[in-house]
Design a protein around this nucleic acid. Structure first.
Lengths: 212, 212, 212, 212
DNA sequence: GATGAATGAGTATTCATTCAT
DNA sequence: TATGAATGAATACTCATTCAT
């Protein structure tokens, strides 16, 4: 391992350390009320050091999402490229994957959808924004591809697969945000997972041609 | 018209004037970057005057949502209580109503869903929060009622109607937020309405028992 | 009674009404936290109306003191001019008078001494400041006169009577402020009157020539 | 000198720098009209920096008093514990100490008494208020102790020593405030020291039993 | 790289005062 | 006179970001 590479690893380790801290703080206080100092303290670093690893607060925030998007894409591609599954099985696997990713790190998924629907997006650097757009596009593309298989197989209704992917994505994010907001208001028992399951079922059924 | 009443009207007119201005500014700059001074300028009032009509920035923001929620509830109740429609027709009317409300004032609907998924919710006065919760609850209840009719009629799948209402609501808000965020990113042509229609179709089909 | 005079009386009645309200509000919230609107509400008038009777908040505040100063001066003159009392009796009567005035309206006396030791003084109109200075000077003069009698009678120590009057005045106001501040801090039982009595006794004894 | 200690010193130096600036600005404009920006400018710092050393404006103001109270207490204890002085000498030393402290920093002493008789007191943090109360209590206690010696020695009149201490303290603060207010009004020659001396003399004489 | 003290621009909110009615 | 809606200047405080060490 070259010295260059070792440095790079060390650097990555630090970024992780910060991201972990940021995640805790953001989910604790929300984006606006979390200060860089809070995060620095949580990461046991100085405020200044954060800026050695992240250009600014917005980008640090967006970085949380980046990782989960990357993970999500891997999972989606895995389903999409799996040649052993028929279209219907793929859609089932797709919903399982989404649920898995959610359960892998709920906080960060909520962050992702918050980011997606927030002004923060406007403030990101061209570079980071491109990266996020790229990952989103690819993820959506993978989802669309899966639906497309079903459509081409004549199992699913004739709709634009991209539109279906958007709807699937919206359904997922909509439920995540709505259920987590209900928790803010009502401190309800957490029905999120049940709701997601039901939603995916209904959605899958809705995709099918009636005569089936 | 008594003098009292005239004053009350004048006051309401002012509130509207401010709300209109706030709507413009919020949707232009987003909640955090919109300053009270911006809004005052847009409303052609002094900053101090805003506080004669709204307790603070959060409550001004939330007030935007209040009106649309009230309107939404009226529309939903109208559908729900219409005795001439069978369950399926009601669900169709429901989606029409939601679309109407969206088209009535897209900006403000987006605001509503932003508010719903933001920390701002936590800062509202007990009073206003109660009002919003109340309207939301009633709206969701009306939706659930409609689904319930279909379930009891044996047309729809056996799921908890409240869960179905949540899903319907999430689907709606998810698409609104997602499509408007895509606009931020891509300045795309606006597919929102088409997407919503397709989504509602798929959802409705998914609700039905297979044997139908 | 001419119409002019009637108007003047009416005007004076209003001023009183405002002063009474202001007294309540100032003593309740302190000068800085009392708003003109508070006072207007208490006086059952509109904020604008206060300005028909008082030039501004500072002057309204100072007006409270003016009345008590006028009353104080009357009492002091009464003692000073009383030919039936010998010097020692006059000093005793003097302390009684001060105590009386305090008890007549403790709140307003505290206000007076707050005013005296505050920046507000700097903001008063020339006219009002002159009036206050004039009343203060006359009061101090009356006190000094009393002490002077004792000095000339050879009963009291040879000190400048004006200095003695200043000391007497300071002792009085110092105790008022100190004891009322202790109340703020400790919510103690109110020792003020006892303290004042003791103070005046000690002071009177201190005035006398030793050989007596 | 460890690095820790050096930092602590540096920090303390800064606090002093700010306190000196604040003293100038407060005594120039009074508490309410002095802005944090004024003070920052005077201290050649940024407004934000003030908050690194003082929690808020009130506490900065109160800090001025803290130091003089500490110094005062040292001086009072020194007199109180001095075994070479008889009671009468102690009272003389006491008045000298008070005068010394006044001359050491008149502006700050005036601030102290302003603070004591103001609403600001109510806004202080529990911690700071406790510290001030504690120092005041101890100072008053030391004074009371001195009077008590005279009383027990049968030289002074039989009064509650705490009451005598309160009176002494009130006399001191009353004169300080009154004379400094006269300066505001009249820009008089400064008689304060003379007045204080006379006051203390009269007071001391008043303490003694007549038969002495 | 790491620090953390210093920065200073940015803003919600208050409230004495005014003035059209 | 009386009103009270409107004003808008004034300001404490925050916090992302920088930079000398």
């Amino acid at each position: 391992m070259g010295i260059q590479e070792r440095k790079e690893r060390e650097r990555e380790r630090r970024r992780q350390q910060i991201i972990v801290a940021a995640k805790r703080v953001f989910s604790d206080k929300g984006f606006n009320r979390a200060t860089m100092e809070d995060i620095a303290k949580e990461a046991e670093l100085s405020p200044g050091s954060l800026y050695l690893y992240f250009k600014n607060k917005d980008e640090l925030y967006a970085s949380l999402s980046l990782r989960i998007l990357q993970y999500l894409l891997i999972r989606l591609d895995h389903v999409s490229l799996n040649k052993e599954l028929n279209p219907e099985q793929k859609v089932a696997a797709l919903t399982d994957a989404m649920l898995d990713v959610y359960e892998f790190d709920p906080v960060i998924i909520i962050n992702l959808f918050h980011l997606q629907s927030s002004e923060t997006l406007k403030n990101l650097s061209e570079e980071l924004l491109t990266e996020i757009k790229d990952l989103s596009r690819k993820s959506l593309g993978a989802i669309a591809g899966i639906f497309n298989e079903g459509i081409e197989a004549g199992i699913y209704i004739q709709e634009h697969p991209i539109a279906l992917a958007d709807i699937f994505w919206s359904l997922f994010s909509g439920i995540i945000l709505w259920e987590s907001s209900k928790n803010i208001i009502d401190k309800n028992k957490d029905y999120l997972k049940d709701t997601l399951k039901t939603a995916f079922e209904v959605f899958s059924r809705g995709l099918k041609k009636e005569e089936l």
